[in-house]
């Protein structure tokens, strides 16, 4: 966890932009001595931040390391609360597990858990999620909305929209959403979202949103069995992307959409979700634990439930399923 002093320092450099900040100004802002400031700047240098120091003017940050440490994510982050607490680890079994525990212990809303690699990343039904070191974004976000538990699944669609907007903003690519919240580029998966709820029968304690984004993996980094169905931003764009910038954009868009949702309800989110959706109007296959339905995706309901019309003309409400688009080999 970042110290409060470090948070204040990073926030000051974020706000100052290209302006210089004197040691005294920083000391006043952070409420500490100039020696303490100097020590923190030395530590940031060791992390890979580059500073320009000019006599009688002060410091400014000229370059940032290509990391996703708490310092790197906070520098340039423009959110009110999402990402204001960052729990960063080099290696974790699963960010979701740690976030789940932190949420249980009372971590504030907007806390994020992030790791360079996950040893036991997982997806739906405990399926393994491949999350190698330094190449992706493996992150969990804790939210505590005051909504009834039965509305919580809508948060997973909100997150999908936030990821699409962040990727568009950062890379110019135009990803699509496959119901409910897989993000695809060129028809292959680049992002998976899995959400867990801590709730009593009528009250949400916390929602833990797990997000895995394939960012800078090269094609050869993918195991043979998922090459056909998964890709990365690097693969599609042809150049690497700053993970910290993508995370900042994601946190900003997630906070914006989350506040919009709390204020106006699901309707504006539904419109955005549908505008990015890949499968609406198409023939798809929905595989659930007990049965498989073939038919046309009609859209989603006001709650985010998938509506599907089968060959006999019956409309099904789909709450959980794996969706195969027409032509999928899976």
């Amino acid at each position: 966890m970042q110290s409060e002093l470090r948070k204040k320092l990073i926030a000051a450099f974020t706000n100052s932009g290209t302006e210089y900040l004197s040691g005294q100004t920083l000391a006043d802002l952070a409420g500490c001595s100039r020696t303490a400031i100097w020590k923190h700047i030395e530590e940031l240098r060791k992390e890979g931040f580059e500073f320009e120091a000019v006599r009688k003017k002060g410091y400014r940050i000229t370059n940032t390391p290509e990391n996703i440490t708490a310092d790197e994510i906070s520098f340039g982050l423009k959110t009110k609360f999402v990402g204001s607490n960052i729990h960063y680890e080099e290696t974790l079994d699963s960010t979701q597990k740690v976030a789940y525990r932190l949420a249980y212990e009372g971590a504030p809303e907007g806390t994020i858990v992030i790791a360079e690699e996950q040893l036991a990343g997982r997806g739906r039904m405990q399926r393994k999620w491949h999350s190698p070191k330094y190449s992706g974004i493996w992150m969990s976000v804790i939210l505590r909305p005051e909504i009834p538990p039965q509305k919580a699944p809508q948060l997973t669609l909100i997150t999908a929209v936030a990821v699409v907007q962040a990727i568009q903003e950062t890379t110019g690519l135009h990803p699509q959403i496959k119901w409910p919240n897989d993000i695809l580029l060129s028809g292959k998966k680049i992002t998976g979202i899995l959400t867990e709820l801590q709730a009593e029968s009528d009250k949400i304690n916390s929602i833990i949103i797990g997000i895995g984004i394939n960012v800078n993996q090269r094609e050869e980094d993918f195991p043979e069995e998922i090459k056909q169905i998964a890709t990365s931003i690097l693969n599609e764009l042809g150049q690497p992307v700053s993970r910290a910038k993508l995370i900042q954009s994601l946190l900003k868009n997630l906070e914006k959409l989350y506040l919009l949702y709390l204020d106006k309800g699901f309707q504006p989110i539904k419109l955005l979700w549908e505008s990015y959706a890949i499968s609406i109007g198409e023939f798809i296959t929905a595989r659930t634990l007990n049965k498989t339905i073939n038919g046309r995706a009609l859209g989603i309901t006001e709650d985010g439930v998938l509506l599907m019309e089968d060959e006999a003309g019956t409309v099904h409400h789909i709450y959980s399923a794996d969706i195969d688009l027409k032509g999928d080999q899976v």
Partner: peptide, 13 residues
């Protein structure tokens, strides 16, 4: 209980 990839572990209470 799961809907839209949101997993709710139900406790006995």
């Amino acid at each position: 209980v799961e809907a839209m990839k949101l997993f709710n572990e139900i406790e006995a209470e």
